[in-house]
């Protein structure tokens, strides 16, 4: 039985690699791109900046060693979703290459870095928080309309351009739902940002992304998600038992912002607002221009350099 199971998994790995060969571009990317600097290290791979030799355009390349990937099907899913879901608030997928066991995914590069640096190193005002929430909600409305759940919304996966543009990235854990199977149960995401229905292993749908957006809004207020000082297991327990997290000095926030947070961080999924509904929330009328994020991006970069 063990051998059969092992054989079944083995076959599916080969099937996945075969499928990947049908998707990727044939050719050696080392001859098309000059790798520059390592800018990120995640569980699934390493991210570099690179210059496309032909055009001189700066791109980001995510490099993954397939043999080290426990769930290869997620990689195929990531490429297909990014390739078929182009949107101004989604990092643009450009190309992909298979070099032996190494998969290269070439994407648009945003030099402003991730939102995490901005939330941990600077203070954002409500107008700026509203603007970022609006941009992410636009991406989520588009994805949810196309039956895609991101499942890992957090500041680390929001990239910024120097002009203040805001884009969602890392579709390595997203789920494509269908009318027959519009719910999922596998626990996927980052513990501190997980919705209660995910933590308690109930069936969940697109609104898990809305909860995570609410937690990300707390990041933009406090610099980190609730319970980050706890270990992940205890954080899951606290999410399951406390439901909506406490926000320190919540009374200092405007009533509109407090209501926006309440609509995102609603434990009853049916009562929790959708992306489309939230895009009409009056809090988003407080949006300041995205260009105001430029100063925060520069300040965050100087601060992280200083570390």
């Amino acid at each position: 039985a063990q051998q059969m199971k092992q054989k079944k998994k083995k076959m599916s790995d080969e099937e996945i690699i075969e499928k990947l060969r049908g998707i990727v571009t044939i050719g050696d990317p080392n001859r098309k791109f000059t790798k520059m600097e390592k800018i990120g290290q995640g569980a699934s791979g390493t991210v570099f900046t690179a210059i496309e030799i032909l055009t001189g355009m700066e791109v980001a390349i995510k490099q993954m060693n397939l043999s080290q990937q426990p769930k290869k099907e997620l990689i195929v899913n990531e490429i297909l979703v990014m390739r078929e879901n182009k949107h101004p608030n989604v990092v643009n997928y450009l190309d992909s290459y298979l070099v032996g066991e190494e998969l290269w995914v070439v994407m648009e590069y945003l030099p402003g870095g991730s939102l995490t640096d901005v939330v941990t190193e600077t203070c954002m005002d409500e107008g700026q928080i509203a603007a970022v929430c609006r941009e992410v909600l636009q991406a989520l409305e588009f994805l949810h309309y196309n039956h895609v759940i991101h499942r890992d919304i957090k500041s680390d996966n929001i990239l910024l351009g120097m002009d203040g543009s805001v884009k969602l990235t890392d579709f390595g854990f997203c789920a494509q739902i269908s009318p027959e199977q519009n719910k999922r149960t596998t626990m996927v995401g980052t513990p501190y940002w997980m919705a209660p229905e995910v933590v308690t292993r109930k069936q969940y749908g697109p609104k898990v992304d809305i909860w995570s957006l609410g937690i990300m809004a707390i990041e933009m207020i406090e610099g980190e998600p609730p319970y980050l000082n706890e270990n992940p297991l205890r954080a899951l327990y606290l999410i399951a038992t406390n439901g909506k997290p406490e926000i320190k000095e919540k009374e200092k926030l405007s009533p509109l912002f407090q209501d926006f947070l309440d609509k995102c961080l609603e434990c009853d999924v049916d009562k929790r607002w959708s992306a489309s509904e939230l895009l009409k929330h009056p809090f988003l009328k407080l949006c300041r221009p995205l260009t105001t994020l430029h100063a925060l991006i520069v300040a965050a970069r100087d601060a992280t350099k200083g570390h």
């Binding site: 426990p70 190193e121 890992d152």
Partner: peptide, 19 residues
């Protein structure tokens, strides 16, 4: 500056080792 613990920010799929 606010503290960031990289390990805690990793994404989990299914049952992580610590569960």
């Amino acid at each position: 500056g606010k503290r960031r613990d990289r390990r805690k920010r990793y994404t989990v799929v299914g049952n992580p080792y610590w569960m």
